[in-house]
Amino acid sequence: MVENASIKIGVDPARGAGIFWLSRGGSPANLLNEFDCGRFIQQSYYGRQDGSDWNGKPWSWNPVQCGSWQNQPARVLECSKKGNCIATQVNPRNWAGQQLCDDVWMRADISLAGKHADLKFTVRYSGCSDNPVRIQELPAVFLSRKLGQLVFYDGPEPWQGKALTTKEPGQVNENYRITENWAAYIDPTTGEGVGIYTPVAQTITCYRVGKDGSAACSDCSYVAPTMRFALQPGFEMSYHCFIMIGTVEEIRKEFSDIRGWALNNRPEMLASAALAGATPAI
Rank of each mutant, 00 (worst) to 15 (best):
262 A>I: 01
165 T>D: 07
142 F>E: 00
125 Y>P: 10
262 A>K: 02
279 T>P: 03
48 R>H: 13
227 M>S: 14
234 G>I: 02
9 I>P: 00
89 Q>L: 12
275 L>P: 03
140 A>D: 05
278 A>N: 03
25 G>N: 09
250 E>K: 08
267 P>T: 07
78 E>Y: 09
12 D>T: 05
58 P>D: 02
257 D>H: 07
181 N>Q: 15
120 K>M: 13
140 A>Q: 08
258 I>Q: 09
18 G>V: 10
139 P>C: 11
127 G>Y: 07
138 L>P: 06
25 G>D: 10
75 R>V: 14
130 D>W: 10
134 R>S: 14
16 G>L: 04
265 N>E: 10
13 P>L: 00
103 D>E: 15
94 N>V: 06
24 R>D: 14
110 I>F: 04
96 A>Q: 05
78 E>S: 13
199 P>I: 06
127 G>W: 06
169 P>M: 03
84 N>A: 14
216 A>N: 14
148 G>L: 10
107 R>G: 13
228 R>A: 12
280 P>L: 06
270 L>N: 02
52 S>T: 12
242 F>M: 04
54 W>S: 08
267 P>F: 01
92 P>A: 09
205 T>F: 01
109 D>L: 14
277 G>K: 11
249 E>F: 07
243 I>G: 01
110 I>Q: 04
86 I>E: 05
267 P>N: 04
61 W>G: 02
212 D>M: 12
93 R>S: 13
17 A>K: 09
31 L>N: 09
112 L>F: 01
65 Q>Y: 02
191 G>H: 06
254 E>C: 15
129 S>R: 10
203 T>I: 01
162 K>R: 13
3 E>T: 13
123 V>K: 05
209 V>L: 12
197 Y>L: 11
255 F>V: 08
250 E>Y: 07
206 C>R: 00
227 M>P: 06
35 F>R: 11
92 P>C: 05
222 Y>G: 04
248 V>N: 09
200 V>H: 02
27 S>N: 08
108 A>E: 11
53 D>H: 04
113 A>Y: 01
204 I>T: 05
64 V>K: 02
211 K>Q: 15
148 G>F: 02
122 T>W: 09
141 V>I: 13
272 S>C: 11
16 G>A: 09
129 S>L: 12
204 I>S: 05
172 V>N: 12
207 Y>T: 04
167 K>E: 13
95 W>K: 08
269 M>P: 00
205 T>A: 01
17 A>N: 07
108 A>M: 14
15 R>E: 11
233 P>C: 00
133 V>D: 14
56 G>R: 03
106 M>N: 03
164 L>K: 12
43 Q>H: 05
35 F>H: 15
120 K>Q: 12
256 S>M: 07
242 F>Y: 15
85 C>Q: 15
150 L>H: 08
24 R>Y: 07
126 S>D: 14
23 S>K: 03
223 V>S: 10
123 V>I: 15
273 A>S: 12
200 V>D: 03
246 G>Q: 04
138 L>Q: 11
215 A>R: 15
190 T>I: 13
280 P>M: 03
115 K>M: 01
100 L>N: 08
